[in-house]
Write a protein that binds this DNA or RNA. Structure first.
Lengths: 112, 112
DNA sequence: CCGTATACCTCGAAAGACGAGGTATAGTAC
DNA sequence: GTACTATACCTCGTCTTTCGAGGTATACGG
């Protein structure tokens, strides 16, 4: 057993990214902040997670990227495609199923 | 994105195994059934997940194994060590933190 | 001109989930 | 006695993903 770096986090970055971008178009750095805000600092996606995830999601057709210049900087803005929204719905539903199941198991046998 | 095999499941097998074995000593097959029961069939751990996990947990000192003969069969019973219980507490707390964070994010901005 | 914040990126290591496949025994049906 | 099913354990290779560390470049305040 490693000391649990990625433990319990698989799929969570993808889910959060899709969820927050479904709300509004954002660029990477902004999205990183949004994740922290939306989770009250409970979850923070490092850049080594965020950028590869964004690229992979774009490649998979779940996100669309476009470069825009703002404040003299070039930013890459991402928005969710129709396919991305379907994926979000799938992931959210799967999350709820697993979360409920784990919750039930953690609660333990309600000594009948 | 692959088609979501292990998606959102990282750490969950370990957490469920520790949780259920903390309740009572069990052997592998029994544990597999217990996982299904405890999660109302929402989660089922395949043997390719279960046995390697049990071995790894035993190796890490979180579980203790002992072979027992019952009904003409040799079964390997596992119980949770003190260290295993500490690990369970850690994982459960981490789970709750992440689950709450994801839940919050999924709920979305409660338009102030 | 220098430090800090912004903004993007890539790499390698590590871990773990999973399906498929493999062995062997006990009990039941024919 | 033979076939089938359930029990019970195991391992292997594949695949995906998270993560920290490290790298580049620009804007801006002092």
């Amino acid at each position: 057993m490693g000391d649990a770096r990625a433990l319990l986090m698989s799929g969570v970055p993808e889910l959060l990214i899709l969820r927050l971008l479904a709300e509004r178009e954002m660029y990477g750095y902004e999205l990183a902040r949004a994740v922290r805000t939306a989770t009250h600092d409970a979850i923070s996606l490092g850049e080594g997670v965020l950028y590869p995830a964004l690229h992979s999601l774009e490649l998979g057709g779940l996100l669309r990227a476009r470069r825009r210049r703002a404040a003299g900087r070039t930013r890459v803005y991402y928005s969710v495609t129709a396919q991305g929204r379907r994926r979000l719905a799938f992931l959210a539903s799967r999350w709820r199923r697993i979360a409920a199941a784990v919750e039930t198991a953690l609660a333990g046998p309600q000594h009948a």
